[in-house]
Design a protein around this nucleic acid. Structure first.
Lengths: 199, 199
DNA sequence: TATTAATTAGGACGTTCGTTCAATTCCATC
DNA sequence: GATGGAATTGAACGAACGTCCTAATTAATA
């Protein structure tokens, strides 16, 4: 017995895909249901068949995006040994998989006084998923002696690394892929070595 | 002869102030003329007496913000000698004076297909003002031998530094001042020294 | 005090927004 | 091939949007 009639499930994820791209590109308020309808090719009414409302749709997208991001990173990261290798891998991974603009849209929605408290709560913890992943890498680097870090510097280091990668994601839609990838990689180099002339 | 009747000029800059804060906090689409009217305490019609429309208002704010930012930085920066000192000063300056969220709102507006081409053009060059300032510092550091940089790395270094500071500005409205300032300063330290175990 | 031009308010406009809902189409099953 | 529930549509709703227009208010000048 097949529970799936029509292409309902596919339609749902098509809507989700298109909506995620639109939210990432134009922000929460900047994206209308009509936009999503046009882009996905299905009626406005049908969007409301799959999702309760615009806010819930966004929260679903944000949470799901982060869950899948974490899952895929954990699958990828085992292929890299040292912390430095992992940082480079992470830079590429974020460049290709991260939907930071979606996080920004989340901030936009979260800071709006009209947003429901439950939504704000759910959105609050969103950024902690990638931050945790960054933290783990720097922790490893500290433990193996690759990095010269003190315990209390770990969190802020991961935070800043994530902020830089996140900032670079702003250029995903306006910059060529190749030079952007170079910037992602150079971010790692700078974090690791700095730019100071050594003794 | 006084050209200023009433407090028109003051009212205009009051509108500009409130509008800038709102745009920075809630984005371009997320901020309504009614919001600005409520916040500034003057009528919607009066906003249109001072500004042609919402788009032009935003462009004015963005350009004016950047112009004033540059002016004030140039006044401040002469108090610092070395490139490292200037980087720390810049971090503090951005923390206290930069309206990066306004730049993000600019990207939001600029990437909207409905936005007029002239506006897009004006917005395009916005980010280059601070980037130029960052570039200058790293160039100085390279020339004085403080930094170990090659000519062709200058631009990307300034770009990344600006991206990191800009990313940190996202937390202006959600984080306490003191720990945020610490993150700004630590950004400089990491950029300068990196985190790799030396020798 | 009367006149005038600059300033401000507030409501009306057409449009677009998020949302709802009745009607229709589709497919699995009988 | 008829039936029923799931999938999908498209029109319609009130609210909110950006913008415009007219009327009221103000302060300077005559």
């Amino acid at each position: 017995m097949n529970k799936r009639h029509y292409d309902s499930e596919e339609t749902r994820s098509l809507i989700a895909d298109k909506a995620a791209r639109l939210f990432a590109q134009k922000g929460f308020a900047g994206t209308s249901i009509a936009d999503i309808s046009r882009e996905s090719g299905c009626s406005k009414g049908h969007i409301y068949y799959h999702f309760e409302n615009k806010e819930k749709l966004f929260v679903y997208l944000a949470l799901e995006t982060m869950r899948s991001w974490k899952e895929r990173w954990e699958a990828v990261s085992v292929n890299y040994g040292t912390a430095v290798e992992k940082l480079h891998a992470m830079a590429s991974f974020v460049h290709n998989n991260y939907k930071t603009p979606l996080l920004q849209a989340g901030q936009e929605l979260g800071s709006n006084p009209a947003t429901s408290p439950e939504t704000v709560t759910k959105l609050r913890g969103l950024a902690s998923t990638p931050m945790q992943a960054y933290y783990e890498i720097f922790k490893q680097g500290m433990e193996t002696g690759e990095f010269d870090l003190r315990e209390e510097e770990l969190e802020s280091t991961g935070f800043l690394f994530g902020t830089l990668l996140g900032g670079l994601c702003q250029y995903l839609y306006t910059m060529e892929n190749e030079p952007l990838e170079a910037l992602f990689q150079r971010s790692v180099t700078i974090f690791v070595h700095g730019i100071c002339r050594k003794g």
